[in-house]
Amino acid sequence: MNEEGSLILRTLTHRDNDAFSALVRMHQNKIRAYLVRLCRNYDLADDLAQETFITAFRKLETFKGAGNFSGWLFKIAHNSFLQHLRKTKRRIEITEQFTDQQEILTEKYEAISTEQIDIEKALTQLNPDETATITLSHSFGFSHQEVSDILNMPLGSVKSNISRGKTKLKEILTKTGGLEKAS
């Protein structure tokens, strides 16, 4: 059994806080990066990430162990995001602090290059479905089928969202010179 598996087992059998904290430490950066891309607001993303881990802790016995734990966490995170949208009944607005202040970006991220800043900015121009599908498949390595399961979205829609989103991203980055910088 790998480290993740044994931590899950320890949490399940002993309700061991330290084991679950280790799981949080292991996955927090991806879950928060994903939620930041969806929410476009760091504080909100952190609140939803916290909610995600608390829900995961409470519902850990429903995780069958057959699937991917990381995928299961992303599913909870995405549902938290959708629930937030339903509660607030409004579109996510991009706050100024999100994209424009270099010092905030360097403070929030472990390390961020100018190319990565360009990508983060460009992703704010996509709709949440495009952002979610592209992030899960291209940034976090899930297969299209896994993305479909996580987002509860038909496989065809996953593929079309990725294709449309990537075309938009390419256009935005071509305009801003983001792709040339990266080459």
Binding site: S21, R32, A33, V36, Q50, I54, Y109, F140
Partner: peptide, 25 residues
């Protein structure tokens, strides 16, 4: 080029997040 950029996402730093969640548990 775009695929390469997307495959290297910027990761959010922990900065006390895990401790905060731990306290909630």
């Amino acid at each position: 080029q775009l695929d390469k950029l997307l495959a290297q996402p910027a990761m959010i730093a922990d900065r006390g997040f895990t401790e905060q969640v731990d306290q909630s548990f």
